[in-house]
């Protein structure tokens, strides 16, 4: 890439900034990548305590060695069908800003190195996912992996908007 071309692309999309190692996983037939630096650990499926008054995609909370952390069902978050848990179902624990969060996925595949030259900007059309959650599209072994901006998917704002509604209304709206 010439420096000129880089600048052009840099205005909106910069492949260089997002190249690196990704943990790939699947949801149904789709393959996704997660920046490895955000991944804390991968754990098998365990008992999830559901929390009332929360949207369906918030599966509940788990005990991660004494810490209580929320678990999100990424399928439900992306508007897919809920899956039946299998041997391969995993929880990927990610570290976003100041909190740990678990995301429920079908299978974890591998860690891959995605060079900038193999990354394309996110498509203008989205299927079930709003494209702002996508860093880019990584092309590897004849497959395309959707590189997720997990912090955006799980941003407090995104979640809180939904979770907080109940609380504010009951507390502040005089009956």
């Amino acid at each position: 890439m010439t420096s000129q071309a880089k600048e052009e692309a840099g205005s909106k999309f910069n492949a260089n900034r997002i190249e690196g190692k990704y943990l790939t996983f699947t949801l149904g037939d789709e393959e996704y990548g997660l920046e490895i630096l955000k991944v804390r650990e991968i754990i098998g499926l365990m008992e999830i305590t559901s929390v009332p008054q929360t949207p369906e995609f918030i599966k509940g909370v788990i005990n991660l060695r004494g810490k209580v952390i929320p678990v999100i069902d990424l399928r439900l978050k992306f508007g897919m069908e809920e899956a039946v848990a299998t041997e391969e179902t995993c929880i990927i624990v990610v570290d976003i800003v100041e909190m740990l969060m678990g995301i429920l996925v079908d299978t974890v595949s591998e860690v891959v190195d995605v060079p900038a030259s193999n990354i394309e900007p996110p498509p203008a059309f989205g299927n079930n996912i709003s494209t702002e959650f996508i860093l880019g599209m990584g092309k590897l072994h004849n497959k395309v992996k959707i590189l997720l901006d997990i912090a955006k998917v799980l941003s407090q704002k995104e979640m809180m908007n939904i979770a907080m509604l109940e609380g504010i209304e009951t507390d502040e709206n005089p009956r």
């Binding site: 305590t49 929390v51 009332p52 008054q53 929360t54 918030i58 909370v61 005990n63 004494g66 810490k67 209580v68 952390i69 929320p70 909190m99 407090q156 979640m159 809180m160 979770a163 907080m164 509604l165 109940e166 609380g167 504010i168 009951t170 507390d171």
Partner: peptide
């Protein structure tokens, strides 16, 4: 244990415990 910002707005829940 605090459940974190995600669940703070739920009036019926004080927190979690192991």
């Amino acid at each position: 244990k605090d459940l974190g910002g995600l669940f703070r707005g739920i009036p019926e829940i004080l927190g979690g415990a192991i």
